[in-house]
């Protein structure tokens, strides 16, 4: 949901984003003049071959990478005008992340993995309520009753579902997914894709997913194609 009074309809508004690595002759442009808008409730897939700058762009959109050129506003707020604490708060409360490598905490059980975002909530949370929510999310993603199990006992698909549950704990408005089915087999990837679709349809969740897999791209309502860091095609699915 966009901040009221901001006058913005976009959840994400990126204008001429440029990301460079290195300097001088060794400069590499990973993202080159990319502009995109993501409205509330969108399901956008960013597709392209490996190394085209998709993940780099997603990192910028998620405020994980602040060294870029161009302008970016999230929920009607200029990201460049925000300090580290404000950006961290934004990531923690309004954005959920799902990664290709899952990035689960191997030393705590599934429930504590889902509850990980609570560690960085500034206000004192209702622990009991959040534990109940974590269990409910595990149920929703098909992992009901496995809150006490360690992630090492989960399959690839189950780990990704667990990561999705973690991303949804604090009810974010934007879900950013970086190759969420990249490490999964076809069937498992399909089930995760279906999960995203269900979340998008039932919750109206705004999703931006970076992928090189066609089935996830087809599930999205919009697609942007990148090549060598530039947008080459953007269409409605």
């Amino acid at each position: 949901m966009v901040d009221p009074g901001s006058g913005e309809a976009s959840v994400v508004r990126a204008t001429e984003i440029v990301k460079r690595y290195g300097d001088g002759k060794a400069t590499k442009v990973a993202v080159d003049q990319v502009s995109l808008d993501v409205d509330d409730g969108d399901f956008l897939a960013i597709v392209g071959p490996s190394g085209c700058g998709k993940s780099t762009l997603l990192g910028i959109l998620g405020c994980l990478d602040r060294s870029f050129e161009g302008s970016l506003s999230l929920f009607g707020r200029d990201v460049r005008a925000m300090n580290d604490a404000q950006l961290a708060g934004l990531r923690g409360s309004r954005i959920g992340f799902v990664f290709q490598a899952f990035h689960l905490l191997g030393h705590v059980d599934a429930r504590d993995n889902v509850l990980a975002p609570v560690l960085f909530v500034r206000e004192r949370p209702d622990e009991k309520k959040l534990r109940a929510r974590a269990d409910a999310l595990l149920e929703e993603v098909g992992l009901g009753g496995r809150g006490d199990d360690m992630p090492s006992t989960f399959s690839g698909g189950e780990r990704q579902r667990l990561a999705v549950a973690r991303a949804l704990l604090l009810e974010p408005e934007l879900l950013l997914c970086d190759e969420p089915t990249g490490n999964l087999d076809l069937a498992t990837g399909r089930s995760v894709t279906e999960l995203f679709l269900r979340l998008h349809e039932e919750r109206g969740l705004t999703i931006v997913a970076v992928t090189h897999e066609e089935q996830l791209a087809e599930a999205a309502s919009r697609t942007i194609r990148l090549s060598a860091g530039r947008v080459v095609d953007g269409k409605e699915s």
């Binding site: 994980l64 604490a85 975002p117 560690l119 973690r166």
Partner: peptide
Amino acid sequence: RREIALYRALGATGGD
């Protein structure tokens, strides 16, 4: 590094 980066994604600041 991975864990720290994950925590940053989940809302932790560098100071945290």
